[in-house]
Amino acid sequence: MSLYQQVRALLYKEIVLEWRSRYALNGILLYVVSTIFVCYLSFRGLQAVTWNALFWIIMLFASINAVTKSFVQESRGRQLYFYTIASAQAIILTKIIYNVFLLFLLAVLALFFYGIVFTNPVGDPALYLLAVVLGSISFASVFTLISSIASKASNSSALMAILSFPVIIPLLILLIKLSKNAMDGLDRASSYNEIAVLLAINLIVITVSLLLFPYLWRD
């Protein structure tokens, strides 16, 4: 099978598995909604800068929780089975693509609910949505490989946070800046720099993941 066919089959399997036991999906959606509600009850009103920063912090924690399970939940036996029928690149690529969709869904839902409880005018909604898309891609690409690293060690959930925070911070800084530009409704040309750097970092991270993952699973 070609890489494309493998990725498609594996992606289908991920979605079917997720849909059958919806508890993981529902759990993470409930997690983000209740976090927002806790924030609402503790902050009440927010200033524009805080509104933006808080949204990304909520997304950061929800994303870590959502992605951590991508390698931990599968039993050793099942992983061994996948490894005999698919290439390592196909597996990591599938996980990244699947996590991008999952995190995008999560982010859109979070943004919708967040916008209801904390009303805040966004100057350029299309650009803000682009920031959310780029954010989902960045979180997914960074956290997927790190979750597979963390799943190999004991105490993986604590390790996941320690390993991923320093790596995600540069991306988070750029995302907050980009979405702040969108919120203020600045001219789009002023955000091209951030978008380009974000895309470049993601390209590097995904390439490095594809190169490194074969060393991780052979174990």
């Binding site: 690293i149 004991s154 390993l163 790596v167």
Partner: peptide, 28 residues
């Protein structure tokens, strides 16, 4: 990360992967 694993070969391999992964981000 190195401290969290006891088996030497596994520790060496996994921490090498993290080292290579983190370096380009550190350059950025």
């Amino acid at each position: 990360l190195r401290g969290s694993m006891d088996e030497e070969q596994k520790r060496a391999k996994i921490s090498a992967v993290y080292n290579v992964f983190a370096f380009p981000v550190m350059l950025v």
